[in-house]
């Protein structure tokens, strides 16, 4: 007798919300946990290569040096993109569409600048003989910063989508999850960079 009634349904009953947390937000947080673990694995490799392996050395050695200052400026650029993003998020909550658009655009441009500077750095380092193929220190340097760079790239794609949708007027003070949730990802990418920068360049 159930079978007869089933076919009249056109949609499911709405699921009960058993937690106050928004599902998309929770999903993003869990995804970030697994992302942190990917970085964790790369940091494990870094730890082994820098500390555990017999005769381990780290930059600067044999005249190979990392451009700490340039990367420091680049860090500042990436961090300020978190601020502009935050501004964009606050703006839409207050119904300020212009703020959202300008904020998103700035965030995107700052992120792109970061990536551009990093690629330039790679080119310089390669010319100086620091390549992933030359020695394991280079391997893990490119491994960690490259993994992060890939995340910046993906983050930029997501920001691009948000920006396009912002310009099409998709968000409103009541519906801004589409800015909020990708925003968390971008903040995560920024925080991760601080960890990468500190361990690879400074420590």
């Amino acid at each position: 007798m159930e079978a007869a009634t089933v076919h009249h349904h056109h949609g499911p009953p709405e699921a009960n919300r058993s937690s106050r947390i928004h599902p998309a937000l929770l999903g993003m947080l869990l995804f970030i946990i697994s992302e942190v673990m990917v970085f964790g694995a790369f940091f494990t490799a870094y730890f082994f290569i820098r500390v555990v392996v017999p005769g381990a050395e780290w930059f600067p050695f044999d005249g190979f040096e990392l451009p700490v200052a340039v990367a420091g400026v680049n860090t500042a650029i990436l961090l300020s993109s978190s601020l502009t993003l935050h501004w964009a998020q606050v703006s839409i909550k207050n119904g300020n569409h212009t703020g959202l658009k300008v904020g998103m655009l700035l965030t995107f441009l700052l992120g792109a600048t970061f990536l551009f500077v990093q690629i330039n750095e790679y080119a310089t380092l390669t010319r100086e003989g620091i390549t992933p193929q030359a020695f394991a220190q280079g391997t893990i340097f490119y491994g960690l910063t490259g993994l992060h760079g890939a995340h910046v790239f993906i983050g930029l794609l997501i920001l691009l989508v948000v920006t396009i949708r912002a310009f099409r007027g998709h968000y409103s003070p009541d519906h801004h999850d589409g800015v909020e949730v990708p925003g968390i990802y971008w903040h995560f990418v920024d925080v991760m960079w601080i960890v990468v920068y500190t361990t690879v360049y400074i420590l």
């Binding site: 694995a41 494990t44 082994f48 392996v53 005769g55 992933p132 020695f135 394991a136």
Partner: peptide, 23 residues
């Protein structure tokens, strides 16, 4: 790409693979 994660001659660490894999 010829990276050296596990090339002991270039300063890589062979046992690191096992730690990461078994984790």
């Amino acid at each position: 790409l010829g990276f050296n994660f596990f090339d002991a001659a270039q300063g890589g660490d062979v046992l690191m693979y096992q730690h990461v894999f078994w984790f």
